[in-house]
């Protein structure tokens, strides 16, 4: 079912309703911004358990503002955020991480002076008194090939792609019920973008619920189940990834000659 109403305030998607039970993440009519500048103007979005949903749009469309408002980095002006049915609107990020929402921020933000292992351990910080941190640490390190030999190396010495993997690994250490990824392809070479997206696809196939925010529409839709297209702070189109990729309007405005190369 494809809905391409250009006008905003898109209602909840039927596709989500097909999956039974409470959605993992439900955002209703969220508005947020900086000062008087509106960043996002009434975005509604649903991510069901096990889904990989992509939120796509050009620079300045409001993707990062949305993610920051959902993950507690900024306070939303209005609207609501529900995590597995619990209202978590405007809660602090540390509470949200504890509640199961892990966030890989834009630009990776690994801690350069700390070692790879220390970065990963910080990811498990919210899991107070959980004895399995060491086991999870080994698991994450085993999964990310390049990090294995660099366990005691400072994170600042890693390449961009390795830092992205470390940032994702750090978020996994929180044992999240949903993973929010902010522009994982940013500043990476095309080969590394491919590797990072392969990793995201793997995580999704293992059943992890993921909300992916991406500028790279083709890559984003390439691994997502469903997509939301954002423009100037509002959802302009939503549907399954296949439908969106086949839609002439999407191809025209987002996958033009330049978009295809990206």
């Amino acid at each position: 079912m494809l809905k391409s109403g250009r006008h905003t305030l898109a209602p909840e998607q039927p596709a989500a309703a097909l999956v039974s039970g409470t959605p993992t993440l439900q955002v209703r009519d969220l508005r947020a911004g900086y000062g008087r500048i509106t960043g996002i103007d009434g975005i509604s979005l649903t991510v069901s358990a096990g889904e990989l949903v992509a939120l796509l749009g050009a620079n300045g469309a409001g993707k990062s503002t949305f993610l920051r408002a959902v993950s507690g980095m900024i306070k939303p002006w209005s609207g609501s955020v529900h995590l597995r049915g619990d209202d978590v609107t405007g809660q602090r990020s540390d509470r949200l991480v504890r509640a199961g929402m892990a966030h890989v921020p834009e630009g990776r933000r690994v801690l350069p002076t700390l070692t790879v292992e220390e970065n990963l351990r910080l990811g498990a910080f919210a899991r107070r008194g959980d004895g399995d941190v060491d086991a999870d640490l080994d698991g994450v390190i085993a999964r990310f090939e390049p990090l294995r030999e660099r366990r005691n190396q400072k994170a600042g010495t890693l390449s961009g792609g390795e830092q992205q993997m470390l940032a994702i690994g750090r978020a996994l250490m929180a044992r999240p019920t949903i993973l929010l990824l902010d522009e994982p392809s940013l500043g990476l070479s095309p080969r590394l973008v491919g590797e990072v997206f392969a990793l995201i696809r793997d995580l999704a196939s293992e059943g992890l619920t993921i909300l992916l925010v991406e500028q790279n529409v083709k890559q984003g839709l390439g691994c997502a189940d469903r997509g939301y297209l954002l423009s100037t702070g509002s959802v302009v189109m939503t549907g399954s990834a296949k439908e969106l990729l086949a839609d002439p309007a999407v191809v025209g405005s987002y996958l033009g000659a330049r978009g295809r190369d990206a």
Binding site: S71, S93, R98, A102, P105, L111, T113, L114, F125
Partner: peptide, 24 residues
């Protein structure tokens, strides 16, 4: 300790520390 590590994380990058779930 873990707490010492959290101090260092907050000093180096407060936003990243928040994203890790630290009550900064």
């Amino acid at each position: 300790s873990r707490k010492g590590l959290s101090y260092e994380a907050i000093r180096e990058d407060e936003q990243a520390a928040r994203a890790c779930g630290l009550g900064v």
